[in-house]
Design a protein around this nucleic acid. Structure first.
Length: 272
DNA sequence: CATCATGTTATAAT
DNA sequence: CATTATAACATGAT
C-alpha cells in the first residue's frame, strides 16, 4: 500500500508523540522486520528519550530521539503506523510499539516486508544521508531524468519508475498514474523517450507527486476523479479521458493499468 | 484450493 | 563489470 504520499500520511500518525517521552516499548524481536538491526538494547536506548523529529524521504521514514538516536521505518507492502491510547494491548502484528504517557505509537505489518532500523550516532546514519535526490529537489532535474532514461535505455518505463535509486517514493499506482497522465505506454523503452516527451514526463512526475501529497498525504482524501487512480483497480474500468476500456496486465513483473488509446506505444524521433 | 497483493533484493542471465 | 529479468520473501484477502 504505502508509496510517497501514504508514507507521509503514516509518518504523521505518530505526531502525537512529538516532544513526548518514551516510557516503555514492546517489540516482537526476531521478526523479519528487524533484520540487520540489534534488538537487544533497543528498549534501553529508547526509553526515557524524547521523540524530537519526524522526517520522510520517498518511502523511508526517520524518527529522531534525543540528539543522537535514529529510528528508521520502512512500511514494505503492508506496514502501517498509528497512534492508539496508552492502554493499547499489542496485537498479533504489532511488531513495535512505543508508549508515552498518553499514547501507544504502533508499527504493524502482517506481511513482514517492512523494516525497522536503529542507530545511535551524532549524525544521521549513512543509509539515510546517502538517499538519492527527492522528487522535488533541484537535483531532480529534467537533465537528470534524461540521463536516467539513457543509462537504463532498454528498461521499460514502468519498471524504471519503480527504481527507488532514481525515483524515491514512486510505487505501483503512482507509476501507472504518471505514465497515463504523460500519455506514455508503460512498455516503452526508456531510451526511446526523448525531448519533448522526457521533459513532459519530468513535469508529470512532480505534478502527480505534489498532488498525491496534498490529498492522500495530508488526510487520506481521494485524488481527483479525473485521475486514473480511482478507475484502475475495478474490472471493466474505463479511461476517464476517452472512456475506452483500460488494459490491466503485468509489465516488468507488476500489474499495470493503462489506456491503449491515450498512451503512445511509439514515439516520433526528435525533430532536430 | 488457487490467485493476487500500492515492495525490495538476492541471484541468474545477458 | 553494468544492466536487465526473475524468484523469493510471509501473510491475508478474494
Amino acid at each position: 500500500m504505502p508509496e510517497l504520499a501514504e508514507v507521509r500520511y503514516f509518518s504523521q500518525r505518530w505526531r502525537p508523540g512529538l516532544c513526548k517521552r518514551i516510557t516503555r516499548i514492546h517489540i516482537h524481536a526476531g521478526k523479519r522486520v528487524f533484520r540487520g538491526t540489534q534488538t537487544a538494547g533497543l528498549s534501553r536506548s529508547l526509553v526515557g528519550q524524547l521523540l524530537g523529529k519526524i522526517q520522510t524521504h520517498g518511502k523511508q521514514m526517520m524518527f529522531r530521539f534525543g540528539e543522537d538516536r535514529w529510528l528508521g521505518v520502512h512500511l514494505g507492502m503492508t506496514g502501517r503506523l498509528s497512534a492508539k491510547s496508552a492502554a493499547h494491548l499489542p496485537s498479533k502484528h504489532d511488531h513495535l510499539i512505543l508508549y508515552t504517557s498518553r499514547h501507544a505509537l504502533v508499527f504493524e505489518d502482517p506481511r513482514l516486508f517492512g523494516r525497522i532500523r536503529f542507530d545511535r550516532s551524532p549524525q544521521p546514519p549513512p543509509w539515510w544521508s546517502t538517499l538519492p535526490p527527492d522528487l522535488f529537489s533541484r537535483d531532480f532535474s529534467a537533465r537528470r531524468l534524461k540521463q536516467i532514461l539513457q543509462k537504463r535505455s532498454r528498461t521499460p518505463l514502468k519498471p524504471l519508475l519503480l527504481l527507488q535509486d532514481f525515483f524515491p517514493g514512486i510505487g505501483n499506482w503512482m507509476a501507472d498514474e504518471i505514465l497515463w497522465q504523460a500519455g506514455l505506454d508503460p512498455r516503452l523503452r526508456a531510451g526511446s523517450v526523448l525531448h519533448p516527451h522526457a521533459f513532459r514526463l519530468h513535469r508529470t512526475i512532480r505534478k502527480v507527486a505534489r498532488q498525491a501529497l496534498a490529498t492522500i498525504g495530508k488526510n487520506w482524501s481521494d485524488p481527483p476523479r479525473s485521475w486514473l487512480f480511482p478507475h484502475r483497480w475495478s474490472d471493466g474500468g474505463r479511461c476517464p479521458r476517452c472512456r475506452k476500456p483500460l488494459i490491466r496486465r503485468p509489465v516488468g513483473g507488476r500489474t499495470t493499468c493503462w489506456c491503449p488509446a491515450c498512451q503512445k506505444a511509439t514515439l516520433p524521433r526528435r525533430t532536430r
